[in-house]
Each structure stands twice: as C-alpha cells, then as structure tokens.
C-alpha cells in the first residue's frame, strides 16, 4: 500500500494543505460569498453540508472497493482501508446530521463500525465487515431513491436539492474550495488512521 514508511512526509503535506484549504473555505463562505437572496444567511450552511456529503460518499466508495479487494485477495491491508474509511466517513456524515437531509445514512457508519466492534477475531471481523460494507454501499442508491420518492408525496424536498442549477460563480467557487479542502482533510485523516491501525496490529506480538 502506498501509505508506507516514505509517505509520512506526504501525509504531513496533506495535513497542511487541508488546513489552508479549510481556512480559505471558511473565509470565502462567511466573508466573501454574498448573502443569498431568497434563503438568507441560512444558505451558508450549504458550504459545510455539500462537501460533507460528497466526502461521505467518497468514504462509502472506498469502503466498497476495499471490501471487494479484501474478499478477492484476503489481505488484511484492504480491511484496514475499509475500517478506516468507514470511521472517517462516519465523522463526515455526522456533520450532515444537523439538517437531517441524508436520512438513513448518518447511522450507516456507526452501524457498520458496531459490527466490527463486536467480533474479536481479526480474520472473521474482516470477512463479515467486507460483506456488510458491500451490502451497505450498494444499498445507498436504493435508500436515496426510496426516501426521495417517499417524501415527494408528502412534502417536496426543500433543503437538500443537489447543488441548485443557477448558481452564481462566487457561490460555486466557494463550494469548490470547500469541497477540495474537505477531501484533503479526509485523505489526511484516512492516512493517519490507516497508519495507526497498522502500527497497532504490527506493534503487538
């Protein structure tokens, strides 16, 4: 795996880039981007919300790929990726909890990690977590559509409609900066988490 001994410097660079990006994103979101006309300052939550969702989706995708990778190769490194991505992904889904827009999904990571926590034997934990990760990740589109259809009959989805189409340039730029910053933060945390996981496994007799 490419997060090995030589890449600690890369991890550090990632961390600084993420910090810079977040700072820039914060300034843009609160200071530079204008007040949105129809929704007011509430709209600014979008700069936090949308990047969080996208990052969470990235985490789910990594869990899916790593789970498949584990089942095919049976190498513990894949399981470490899946478990770590799920943990960090859960962190980001936690950020989207406030608006409740991803109903059914915020619990996703906690739920997956709960199973991991309940099995002591490393090999069996990896196997079951891989199956669960695949089921859960492929289920996300089904959950998305079913919740959307269910709601549209009662109330149109107001807060979360994916990025509004007619978005002015400065809104879009702010969103983009925040998205990149969140992705960098995610990559940094993931690298750290995988490293911790590897050390705790190898460090013990």
């Amino acid at each position: 795996m490419w997060f090995s001994t030589g890449s600690r410097r890369l991890t550090r660079v990632l961390g600084w880039l993420a910090a810079l990006g977040l700072l820039a994103g914060l300034v843009l979101a609160l200071g530079v981007a204008p007040r949105e006309v129809s929704q007011g300052d509430v709209q600014r939550i979008m700069y936090l919300h949308v990047p969080s969702i996208l990052t969470a989706y990235l985490a789910f995708a990594i869990v899916l790929v790593a789970s498949l990778g584990y089942l095919v190769s049976r190498r513990q490194a894949w399981d470490r990726w899946a478990g770590s991505a799920a943990e960090i992904g859960t962190l980001f889904t936690g950020l989207t909890l406030a608006s409740g827009s991803l109903w059914g999904k915020p619990t996703w990571g906690t739920w997956y990690l709960m199973l991991r926590g309940m099995i002591d034997e490393a090999e069996r934990r990896a196997q079951f977590a891989a199956v669960l990760g695949i089921v859960a990740a492929l289920n996300i589109p089904l959950v998305h559509f079913s919740v959307l259809w269910w709601r549209t009959l009662h109330q149109p989805p107001t807060l979360l409609r994916p990025v509004p189409a007619a978005l002015a340039g400065i809104f879009r730029f702010t969103l983009g900066v925040n998205w990149v910053a969140f992705t960098l933060l995610f990559a940094y945390l993931l690298a750290k988490r995988i490293r911790v996981g590897r050390l705790s496994e190898e460090g013990l007799p």
Binding site: G104, T107, W111, M114, L115, F145, S146, W149, W150
Partner: peptide, 12 residues
C-alpha cells in the same frame, strides 16, 4: 439492528 437499516428501501 443490522438488518433494519438495510431494509429501509424495501419497507418504504
């Protein structure tokens, strides 16, 4: 607890 969240689309 594992099954129910997966079944959200089926139930709805």
């Amino acid at each position: 607890v594992l099954v129910l969240p997966v079944e959200v689309p089926v139930l709805l």
